[in-house]
């Protein structure tokens, strides 16, 4: 079946099967590779994307459910240079292997859009659905707090 999805500002008409998940369609048909396959059951958060500005796990969304919705991945927020949040992530060496980074950047972006002055607890809560095995989260939490201090994301 045919679905129309906007991905990072671009309109796509895609031919999908009813059981196709959005994550696979984004990666294989649109060529957007930043959402990663980590567990395929919504546990790890590495497939996190923004759907109409809200984070969802794209491994738990059927492609047909994304019909006429607007999808943003980390590629989409980097078109016009890095966001202030990404700048802080970069300068503070917040990530290690980087596999979880696209998902975490989006979860933190959503948080700062909704709550420009989050507490440490708020940040932990916003990131609790994104597993990271390398960093122990601390440098990431500190970077989000620092980005918030410096203004909007």
């Amino acid at each position: 079946m045919e679905v129309e999805i906007k991905v990072n500002g671009e309109d796509w008409a895609l031919s999908v099967a009813p059981a196709d998940v959005l994550l696979d369609v984004l990666r294989e048909q649109v060529g957007t590779k930043s959402p990663k396959i980590g567990c395929e059951r919504g546990d790890c958060g590495s497939c996190t994307i923004l759907m109409d500005g809200r984070t969802v796990r794209s491994c738990l969304v059927l492609a047909v459910e994304a019909e006429r919705h607007e999808i943003t991945t980390v590629e989409g927020i980097s078109f016009e240079g890095l966001s202030p949040l990404q700048d802080v992530f970069l300068s503070s060496n917040a990530f290690q292997c980087g596999f979880c980074a696209p998902g975490i950047v989006l979860s933190a972006t959503e948080l700062l859009e909704q709550n420009p002055d989050p507490s440490r607890h708020d940040v932990q809560e916003a990131l609790a659905g994104n597993l990271c095995r390398c960093t122990g989260y601390e440098p990431i939490i500190e970077a989000v707090l620092e980005a918030a201090k410096g203004g909007s994301a």
Binding site: V74, S78, L82, Q86, F89, N93, F95
Partner: peptide, 12 residues
């Protein structure tokens, strides 16, 4: 020093 792979990793 800032990681030389940092930009790649936070930009996707």
């Amino acid at each position: 020093a800032v990681r030389i792979d940092g930009l790649e990793k936070i930009s996707g």
